[in-house]
Amino acid sequence: MNVFRLAGDLSHLLAIIILLLKIWKTRSCAGISGRSQILFALVYTTRYLDLFTNFISLYNSVMKVFFISTSCATIYLMYVKFKATYDHNHDTFRIGFLLIPVTILGLLINHDFTPLEVLWTFSIYLESVAILPQLFMVSKTGDAETITSHYLFCLGLYRALYIFNWIYRYYFEGFYDLIAIVAGVVQTVLYCDFFYLYVTRVIKGKALKLPA
């Protein structure tokens, strides 16, 4: 464990807490993409299957349980409890266009052609594009609530910090995993224009408005 990975995990944790708070406090999931949340639930359930078979540490297991449970809770809040506030009209990104290529890629490029490893690879590739429906929805609605932009910022920051973690591990532990690194870079790059808007607008107290 290193400071970059810990900061990344905490940023990820914070993002999910912000999202849950936003939905719970405002009793609304307006502006949130349910499709992205479905993809995230798929990411965590396919990645953390080794939760019971491969004990790493208490921290690792607790975080895995947290990510799986909160992603499922978010879907429940969005599609059941606050279903009336879910914005169907703007959450229209075709997730089939993501799932199919990611599945094919997971079957073609992986470290080991075993079920657990292929599912882990699928999860890594899927996570890199899972935010697209959300970013697409923000671009369609043209703006996002400030709390939602904080959620997106923390979520984007987490994998950006992981990149520093991978640099650190390469130099100090000689460890690297190209699949995770390439997917992590792609994932972070997808946030770039949002990061720019967040820093230039939200930090200054303005609302997140996408150029029309």
Partner: peptide, 10 residues
Amino acid sequence: NEKKLKKDEL
């Protein structure tokens, strides 16, 4: 393939 990559990252 190379040594089994320990999946210790989240």
